[in-house]
Design a protein around this nucleic acid. Structure first.
Length: 272
DNA sequence: ATGCCTTATTTCATAAGA
């Protein structure tokens, strides 16, 4: 079984590349992030033509996650219990009266696929440490941890995959000095990941395919990919029964090359 | 200090990303 996670940075803009990649890599289960479409606009027919069942959870312009599976897709969950929503710099209590603004953003979708409970996750960016967006990011990760604890009682085989927007260690950024004081590397964010792992999840670190670091994201600007100035922020956190099945894991950096790529590369796992 | 590049939308300008 081949399981993959990929932040596509717009499923509509990436559709030709996504379809080519699905046909070539032939993953059984795919977690997508930053689809940037509402559920009605998700290009489900094109993906289904390749033999996948599709479950999407989208907002429209921002965020959006989806699951594709060629091995069944059951018990789909959009969002998770206790998932927080963003309330602005000061809490903006007046806005809380507007249901549309109170609804959580589309950042998590879970389902059973091929005997594994799979989650596709897109953690908030956090922007600047100390900001409301940063607090929201930490709240969201903590709330997901609580939801995951309940999930783990039901699903021994579980994989939480996606763009966590946190580099777990200094080795996961191309130059730690550049990121000093920035989001994605702060101790509270890394602790939030450690708290997830403490539930019994293993960080399945992929093979880089080039260079010593298995980066999964490279900024579009300033030739960062060519210089391999990247970050590892797309992660697969797997329970032990899943981690024990990992035969190989790699970053498909070929998918970051050429015309019109996402700024993220897929992480691909082969499970026995 | 800012843009570097790319996306979608309230498009010929803006917000967001990490």
């Amino acid at each position: 079984m081949r399981l993959a996670t990929w932040n596509v940075n717009s499923v509509k803009a990436r559709l030709p590349r996504l379809l080519d990649w699905l046909a070539e890599a032939k993953p059984d289960v795919v977690c997508l992030q930053e689809t940037k479409v509402g559920d009605a606009q998700f290009p489900a027919a094109e993906v289904e033509q390749l033999g996948y069942a599709v479950a999407a959870h989208g907002d429209g312009r921002w965020n959006g996650v989806a699951l594709l599976s060629a091995v069944g897709l059951d018990n789909v969950t959009r969002g998770f219990p206790g998932e927080p929503s963003y309330h602005g710099e000061t809490g903006e209590p007046a806005l809380l009266d507007v249901p549309e603004l109170r609804r959580p953003e589309a950042r998590a979708i879970g389902a059973e696929a091929g005997g594994i409970r799979v989650w596709s996750l897109y953690a908030p960016n956090g922007r600047v440490p100390g900001s409301a967006h940063y607090a929201y990011k930490l709240d969201w990760l903590a709330a997901f941890r609580a939801a995951l604890a309940a999930e783990l009682e039901r699903y021994p085989q579980l994989a939480a995959c996606g763009d966590f927007n946190v580099a777990p260690t200094d080795a996961d950024v191309w130059d730690p000095a550049v990121f000093a004081g920035s989001t994605h590397v702060t101790p509270p964010e890394r602790q939030a990941l450690a708290d997830l792992r403490a539930l019994g999840l293993a960080d399945v670190v992929p093979t880089p395919m080039k260079g010593p670091h298995p980066f999964t994201y490279w900024d579009y600007r300033a030739g960062m990919f060519a210089k391999n100035n990247g970050m590892r922020i797309d992660l697969v956190y797997a329970t032990e029964p899943v981690a024990a099945r990992v035969r190989s894991a790699y970053v498909d950096r070929e998918a970051r090359k050429g015309k019109g790529p996402s700024d993220h590369a897929p992480v691909v796992l082969d499970l026995s």
